[in-house]
């Protein structure tokens, strides 16, 4: 078994469907010049894909 002991999590208690919270991403993005909702909606879609990819290997 190669996975070492748990290294500790960066995030805590994230809700389903989320890998990296939008609020966290917002910090990186800084000032948003256009419509934040457009950016967020698309961000959330890919978040959902990443989430489902990870859980796919558990819910089998």
């Amino acid at each position: 078994m190669t996975g070492e002991k748990p290294t500790g999590n960066v995030f805590k208690n994230l809700p389903p469907g989320v890998c990296i919270p939008w609020e966290e991403k917002l910090k990186d993005l800084g000032e948003i010049k256009g419509d934040a909702d457009i950016i967020r909606n698309e961000w959330d879609k890919l978040e959902l894909f990443a989430y489902l990819y990870l859980w796919y290997w558990v819910q089998r």
Binding site: G3, T7, N9, W55
Partner: peptide, 17 residues
Amino acid sequence: AFIENPTEWILTTYLPR
């Protein structure tokens, strides 16, 4: 770690195994 954040644990600990 699982209880704290299962999604992250899956990626960092479980998938490598």
